[in-house]
Simulated scan of single mutants.
Amino acid sequence: FCQQKRLADMERKAVNDMFVILSDIWLDEEETMVKLRQVLEGYESVEVVPSLFILMGNFCSSPCNLSFHSFASLRSQFGKLGKMIAEFPRLKEHSRFLFIPSPDDAGPSSVLPRCALPKYLTEELQKEIPNALFMSNPCRIKFYSQEIAVFRRDLLYRMRRSCLIPPSTAETSDPFAHLVATIIHQSHLCPLPLTVQPISWNHDHCLHLYPTPHTIILGDRSEQKSFNYAGVTCFNPGSFST
């Protein structure tokens, strides 16, 4: 109880803490890198820099499947990203950078949950940015007393394709609202058939939403949306590169 009270007190004082969340960072697209530099320049000049940058995949404009053979180039692009971040000393020193892969990024398979990005791709970036963290997909962030679940998957499209009975439009016709209500009621981040989205049963608990987190970040290529349901804030940052 004392620890919870202490965390709550610290949380109330952390009024300047800020998270920056971006999804679809195509490192092989020049336009994306120009936009990312503008974002970093903007936050470098603010009075209090963000505590955390959450950067979600895809990190390449092409899926890293069996036909993908540009891993050396992708490794180099991660290194260039590290050098770019290092150009902003306040961000490098005071901010953390969290990288979360998408199912289309380099990895063993498209099975969920996804392990972190391979070290081969990220070690050049890690040398430049010691504060970089490479996490699984999904992952959870503890912000004092609050829990934040982060999941990168184009879930809305797949859920709508797998829908047998159209959701009721009596309360809302917003597909994102229906998606949020579904995953919260199911207490699972990806309640899709295994034929649509394979899941490693030994690690299925990583996708559970019980107990329900305070915030759910769904990285999806659909448009930016935010929806509050049953006391949970859920939002989609949209695609940064499209």
Rank of each mutant, 00 (worst) to 15 (best):
P118T: 01
S136L: 04
S110I: 01
A132L: 07
S95N: 04
I129G: 05
P138C: 10
S62L: 14
I148G: 02
G79P: 03
E87H: 14
S76M: 07
A106T: 10
E123Q: 11
G82E: 04
L66N: 10
M56K: 02
S70T: 05
E87W: 06
N65W: 03
F99H: 03
L155I: 08
E123P: 01
G82M: 00
S70A: 13
A132C: 06
C115F: 10
R153M: 14
Q77E: 13
D104S: 14
S67K: 13
L74Q: 13
K92C: 02
K92S: 07
Q126L: 14
S76T: 08
L55F: 03
L117K: 06
S136Q: 09
F134T: 02
S145T: 07
V111R: 10
R152D: 11
P113M: 15
E147S: 13
C60K: 09
P138A: 15
L98Q: 06
R90D: 05
L112V: 00
I141R: 05
F99R: 02
E147Y: 04
I85A: 01
L81T: 01
P113D: 07
S102L: 09
Y120V: 12
L121P: 01
A72E: 15
G79E: 06
F151S: 00
M84P: 04
Y120G: 09
S62W: 11
L117W: 04
N131V: 02
D104M: 11
D104C: 14
R140C: 10
C139E: 00
K119R: 12
P89C: 07
S136D: 11
P103N: 08
S95T: 00
F68D: 12
P103V: 01
G107Q: 03
E123M: 14
R96N: 12
L125R: 04
T122K: 05
L125M: 15
C64V: 15
V111Q: 11
F99C: 01
E124D: 15
F143N: 02
S61H: 03
C115P: 00
V150W: 03
Q77W: 09
L133C: 06
P108F: 13
F134S: 07
P118G: 02
F78I: 03
F151A: 05
E128R: 15
S67C: 11
R153S: 09
K83H: 06
F88H: 09
K119W: 08
Q77D: 12
F68K: 14
N65Y: 00
F151T: 01
L121N: 05
I148M: 05
E124L: 15
R75H: 12
A106Y: 05
L66G: 11
N58K: 10
P130C: 07
L55M: 08
H94P: 04
S61K: 09
C115I: 08
L81Y: 01
D105F: 03
F97E: 01
G79D: 04
P103F: 00
R114H: 09
A132T: 02
R114I: 07
I85K: 03
V111M: 11
D154Q: 14
K80S: 12
Q77C: 10
H69K: 11
N58R: 15
S145I: 01
S109W: 05
P63D: 10
